[in-house]
């Protein structure tokens, strides 16, 4: 309970992730003497979008309670990027087809994950991890390792900006507002929060536990699919490794953003703060010119620090 006072100063723990993002950005531009301050923000917003989408997926799953986590997200994102690019086939007229195909691949992965968990009673951490190996193999045989370029219209769309703000960032901001409404004001969202606090009590209070869990893993899979197809457009080509960094990132933004790792409490605004903080932290370290090893070291330490610091208020459970 030692850290209570710090995390409840504004009654909104996610304020801290924004503050952290701001401080990291400040440190970076002080180092460059103000050079590239705006560009840094634009780039950070553009990259944060993908962490936020993956983070929303992970947030719903983690909120289901202890043991729930979707480790198949990176493989899912990689496969979806390949599926989207292959279906679009470089042609602007097939953009919608490719996007929907990536979405469908994500939904199938979600259903597959849930079936492993429910039918075979495998703990989610293991079933999603093993699913990710299966998905990777499927991706390899499907894409044959080829990098397929996105259609020009799609590539342009994923990097479009309005007054320095990426178009995708605006879209994702609106999307996360919708997610907030779903989480707090729909029966589905309330059910997720209830299950995360006490699954048995939720069942006895009439919540359809299994249906909600299925829905949550499918939602996570679908968001992975969307994330993958957007990434392929933004980075001008698909690759099966494109999602790799989102294993750690998706979990990190959820935790830094104030969502409880033990479930039952989720925080949507914090996802943006956490994502911006992580992206800007890497930008700052890049500006300082440190090696890749130090970058990983600092990222790891930050996540450990946040979990330790946020550990106090969660002792309610």
């Amino acid at each position: 309970m030692k850290f209570d006072w710090r995390f409840n100063v504004f009654g909104k723990p996610w304020i801290w992730s924004y503050l952290g993002a701001f401080l990291v950005w400040l440190a970076a531009i002080l180092f460059t003497h103000g050079y590239g301050a705006g560009g840094m923000l634009t780039a950070a917003l553009a990259l944060a979008v993908f962490s936020v989408i993956a983070g929303v997926a992970q947030m719903f799953v983690i909120t289901l309670g202890p043991g729930n986590v979707d480790l198949s997200l990176p493989a899912n994102i990689g496969l979806a990027s390949a599926v989207a690019m292959k279906m679009m086939n470089g042609s602007d007229s097939l953009i919608a087809v490719g996007f929907l195909a990536a979405l469908a691949s994500g939904v199938c992965i979600g259903i597959f994950n849930y079936l492993l968990i429910w039918l075979l009673r495998i703990p989610p951490i293991i079933s999603t991890l093993s699913a990710s190996f299966i998905i990777q193999s499927a991706g390899i045989s499907y894409g044959r390792g080829l990098q397929i370029k996105p259609p020009p219209g799609y590539a342009e769309f994923t990097s479009a900006q309005i007054a320095g703000i990426p178009f995708l960032a605006i879209g994702t901001a609106i999307f996360t507002i919708g997610i907030g409404v779903i989480l707090h004001r729909t029966i589905y969202g309330r059910s997720v929060l209830a299950i995360g606090q006490n699954t048995r009590a939720a069942w006895l209070a009439g919540v359809s536990v299994e249906r909600v869990r299925l829905g949550t893993y499918v939602l996570s899979g679908a968001l992975g699919g969307i994330c993958g197809s957007l990434l392929a457009g933004y980075f001008r080509g698909s690759s099966l490794e494109i999602g790799d960094e989102y294993l750690l990132a998706s979990i990190a933004v959820v935790v830094i953003g104030g969502t409880s790792v033990s479930g039952g409490k989720a925080n949507v605004p914090g996802l943006w703060g956490g994502a911006l903080f992580l992206v800007l932290l890497l930008t700052m370290l890049n500006t300082f010119g440190v090696s890749a090893g130090v970058r990983f070291l600092v990222t790891g330490l930050v996540i450990i620090g946040v979990i330790v610091a946020a550990g106090g208020p969660r002792s309610v459970r």
Binding site: R190, Q197, N198, R200, L204, A205, V207, K265, R317
Partner: peptide
């Protein structure tokens, strides 16, 4: 173990059903 949701208000706990 079978009843309350410890992170919620009284109102939310009553309303869930």
């Amino acid at each position: 173990s079978d009843g309350i949701f410890p992170l919620w208000s009284i109102a939310k706990n009553i309303g869930i059903r």
